[in-house]
Every structure is written in structure tokens, then in C-alpha cells.
């Protein structure tokens, strides 16, 4: 087995079928352990019960960013090597990233309300995540609008990479904007430093989310490969209707 075997879609499909059950089992175990640890962990003396939101908020935020990083790497793959599997990977990751980013925004809001008394602040971190969410939606909309997936991949890859350049600039500019507009910051967004008793469940949950993402991503990539095969076969059938008819005849015979 070498790199080129791995890059072959058929080989990739066989690999997915083989490893998927194991990954699903690991994900379920990690979620069970993570949830158990999350609800038996001691309460934070400052945050009380709401600290438990952190166990889903931080992993969701981590995957929201990780997923964009993955898309950026896949985009380089489809621009440099023009490999269809890189296109498939980038396309399959976008909706997943949007889901995790939405989840991070939602859990952040329900964490913020009891902690700081507001659902939303225009803080650098929250604002960058909102922008990240909009970028995911834009990329998904573009995938849906450009109908030929082979032609769509490279322009979208360029957009993804420009977005990756943009995110740190947004983070920086919103930080500056905040120092200009908020005379005295009411909120300390970093939160208290994490106690080790809370760190272990957090890490287990983060790992569970990551494995869940890998499972979803592989399944979604498989769907995308199937979708392209269906598309290619339909186009061949449309190009040669007589051949299709004769093939159907021979099949009957």
C-alpha cells in the first residue's frame, strides 16, 4: 500500500467500510465516558453548574476551527495535486463545520446568559465565530450553486484559503475595535483557569467529539463519492440512450 492507493476512491471506500465500525464503537465509548465524567465532575465554585456547558462548548468550538483548518488543507490538496478526493473531503467537511460552529455559538450564548447576564457580546472570539459561521454558510451555498462538482472545487478552494487568511485578521481587528469602543470591559471572556478535575472530562469530551467528527466526515465523503458516481453514470446514460436501451435488453436476456 502506498500513498497513491490511499488516494484512489475505490480503495478509500473499502478502507472506510473496514474502519468505520471500529471508529463508531470508539466514539460511543468516549461519549459514554465523557458524559459520565462531565456529570460527576465537581462544580466550579464560581460558575456552579454552568461549568458543565463547557464540556460541550469547548469541543464544539475546537471542531468548528479544526474543520476549517481541514478544509484549508484539503483546498491546498485540490489546488496543488488536483486530487478529487481532496475536493470531496473539503466539500464533506463544510456542513459539519457549520453544525459545530452553530453549536459553539449556541452553547456559548446559554453559558454567557447566566455567567455575564447577556446572550451575546461583540467580543473578538464570539465575533470571529459568527464570521466563521457565515463563511461556512457561504461556502455551502456556493457548493450548492455550482452544479458541476469538478469545476466547483478549485474556485471554492481559493475562497476557502482567502477565508483562512481573513480569520486571524478579523480576530485582530475586532480586538482593536473592542479596545476602542468598550471603555471598561465588564466581562472577562477567558474565564477562570481550568481546574485539573475539570480538565480530564473536557479532554475526554473533546476526543469524543473529534472521533464523532471523523466518523461523520468519512461517511459524508463516502456519500459524496457515491453521488459523483451516480452523476457520472446518469450523464453517460443521457449521452448514449441507445446504448442504455441495448444494455437493458441484454440484461433481460
Amino acid at each position: 500500500m502506498n500513498f497513491y492507493d490511499l488516494a484512489n476512491p475505490s480503495f478509500f471506500l473499502r478502507l472506510v467500510t473496514r474502519v468505520l465500525p471500529w471508529l463508531v464503537a470508539i466514539t460511543l465509548l468516549l461519549f459514554a465516558a465523557g458524559l459520565y465524567l462531565a456529570f460527576t465532575a465537581p462544580q466550579d465554585y464560581q460558575q456552579g453548574i454552568t461549568v458543565r456547558i463547557m464540556f460541550v462548548h469547548v469541543p464544539a468550538a475546537w471542531l468548528g476551527m479544526f474543520c476549517y483548518g481541514l478544509m484549508a488543507i484539503a483546498s491546498i490538496g485540490s489546488l496543488v495535486w488536483r486530487h478529487p478526493l481532496a475536493d470531496v473531503s473539503a466539500k464533506a467537511a463544510a456542513p459539519l463545520g457549520a453544525c459545530f460552529t452553530f453549536l459553539a455559538l449556541f452553547t456559548g450564548a446559554v453559558w454567557g446568559q447566566p455567567m455575564w447576564g447577556t446572550w451575546w457580546v461583540w467580543d473578538a472570539r464570539l465575533t470571529s465565530f459568527l464570521v466563521l459561521f457565515i463563511m461556512y454558510l457561504g461556502i455551502i451555498a456556493l457548493w450548492k450553486t455550482l452544479d458541476d462538482p469538478n469545476k466547483a472545487a478549485r474556485p471554492i478552494a481559493i475562497l476557502t484559503l482567502v477565508g483562512a487568511l481573513n480569520l486571524p485578521i478579523i480576530k485582530f481587528s475586532v480586538d482593536l475595535w473592542n479596545t476602542l469602543h468598550q471603555p471598561a470591559s465588564v466581562f472577562r471572556m477567558d474565564g477562570p483557569t481550568i481546574h485539573p478535575a475539570l480538565l480530564v472530562p473536557l479532554l475526554v469530551m473533546a476526543l469524543a467529539f473529534t472521533f464523532f467528527f471523523v466518523v461523520m466526515h468519512l461517511m459524508s465523503m463516502r456519500n459524496e463519492i457515491y453521488r459523483r458516481r451516480v452523476r457520472a453514470m446518469r450523464m453517460r446514460a443521457a449521452a448514449a440512450p441507445s446504448a442504455r436501451a441495448s444494455l437493458a435488453e441484454t440484461n433481460k436476456a
Binding site: G48, I49, R52, I53, V56, T107, V110, P114
Partner: peptide, 15 residues
């Protein structure tokens, strides 16, 4: 689950 438990439940339900 004490004070603010509804927020925690909301977060986990949405997850």
C-alpha cells in the same frame, strides 16, 4: 442540578 440548570439542559439538548 441547582441554579441555572435550565441553561445546562438547553446546551445538552441542543448538542
Amino acid at each position: 442540578l441547582g441554579r441555572h440548570s435550565e441553561y445546562v439542559i438547553a446546551a445538552y439538548v441542543m448538542t
